[in-house]
């Protein structure tokens, strides 16, 4: 089942001054259960593509369908609700809420979904256990290592039971051991729970484990390689 479809997506920054075409007609389809890496040199449009797919930015041309919904047709508030229900985000800089504990960070999005307290707590604990942080649940981000924070971010992204997870350079700030650990967790979630992951990355360690590698060059899909047996 297709979860993401982009058709002729164009995104232009500074259209009135010095226009920069960050995306120049991207056609892409992502199906359920994929473990896809979007790669390419700096400025190729990886992050912009993720932002457009995630409804954080709107394309200037083209269509973006997520789970069968035309997200470009949604209002700002509808998009916020849509993201909350259907998309999980993992950012390069973890972006946890510094004043909340690991458990509260994971609970946060579910709180925004108005889920019952008991359900929030149980799911947060289950997810933190799944990412190997059962003993760090009551720690604040400042008390966790970079790798641990990123695992909390993955748990947070999974909390609302999204259709897929968008991860923008998730390993960029991690050492080798933490990267391997994080990738193991995401691979396991992908295999066992069929969660779809889409990464933008430069990191060869991530690329090596991806089942599909989409290469962007100058805002266009240059290659799209599906590899068997990875992850």
């Amino acid at each position: 089942m297709k979860v993401i479809t982009t058709k002729g997506v164009v995104k232009i920054y500074n259209p009135d001054k010095i226009p920069v075409k960050a995306l120049n007609g991207v056609d892409l389809e992502i199906t359920e259960g994929e473990f896809t890496a979007i790669v390419g040199p700096s400025g190729s449009g990886k992050t912009t593509l993720l932002n457009v797919i995630g409804g954080l930015d709107r394309p200037d041309e083209g269509d973006v369908e997520v789970g069968g919904h035309d997200i470009d047709a949604m209002s700002d508030n509808q998009l916020i609700d849509f993201r909350k229900e259907h998309i999980g985000f993992v950012f390069q800089a973890y972006n946890l809420i510094p004043v909340l504990t690991a458990r509260e960070n994971v609970e946060f999005v579910m709180l925004l979904q108005n889920r019952p307290k008991k359900e929030r707590r149980e799911r947060a604990e289950e997810l933190l256990r799944a990412v190997g942080l059962e003993d760090k649940m009551d720690k604040r981000p400042s008390e966790l290592s970079g790798g641990q924070q990123q695992r909390v971010a993955v748990a947070r992204a999974l909390a609302p039971k999204p259709d897929f997870i968008l991860a923008d350079e998730p390993t960029a700030n991690l050492d080798s051991k933490s990267t391997a650990n994080l990738l193991d967790i995401m691979a396991r979630l992908n295999e066992e729970e069929k969660i779809t992951f889409v990464f933008s990355t430069h990191d060869q360690r991530v690329i090596d484990r991806a089942r599909r590698v989409v290469t962007l060059v100058d805002g266009k899909v240059a290659t799209d390689e599906v590899r068997e047996g990875k992850v």
């Binding site: 916020i80 993201r83 909350k84 229900e85 950012f91 809420i97 999005v109 925004l112």
Partner: peptide, 15 residues
Amino acid sequence: YEFGVLISVGMHRWQ
């Protein structure tokens, strides 16, 4: 930056 993240993960602007 933090405001941007919170809106990204689904927090409404009024919240």
